[in-house]
Design a protein around this nucleic acid. Structure first.
Lengths: 76, 76
DNA sequence: GTGTGACTCGGAGTCCGTC
DNA sequence: AGACGGACTCCGAGTCACA
């Protein structure tokens, strides 16, 4: 699993659990809407400071955005 | 606490627990010696892919490099 | 509401060195 | 062994128009 993809999945999952659109997360984090889109798709390679800004906006720790919490991986 | 400083402290702590020099970690991770130095000092702003490379070399999860865990090693 | 290509520009990342 | 600086290349940060 590419780490960028993992970050994207985590951001998207937590954002949706907040009931936010990408535009709302962009506003809360101070980042650009299309940049959020790129991160969620795993197309961008964010720095740790960007990770922190996203984590703060989402109300989670920066570390949690890197965690691989898909416990069920019966197949590749 | 600046997130870059936090990453630096974590990398340095885990590297030393392995008994490695910065040059050894640089070799193991495939990154440059001076870049490792900059990261440990909190002067650099690494990307998530770099974080993953460091984590793999150190044998820990990428998330653990972002965590704010000072386990209070009371100098056994 | 989101995906995508393309753009500028500053910083990520490397390599040389000195202390 | 490690901090730190200068100079370099190239990619990430940040943005836009458009689909």
């Amino acid at each position: 699993m590419d780490i960028r993809r993992q970050v994207g999945l985590n951001v998207q999952r937590i954002r949706r659990s907040r009931g936010w659109s990408q535009e709302e997360l962009a506003f809360e984090s101070g980042l650009h809407r299309t940049y959020i889109s790129g991160i969620e798709r795993g197309a961008r390679n964010p720095t740790v400071t960007v990770l922190k800004e996203l984590a703060d906006a989402l109300g989670v720790s920066a570390a949690s955005l890197l965690e691989l919490e898909q416990p069920i991986q019966s197949r590749s």
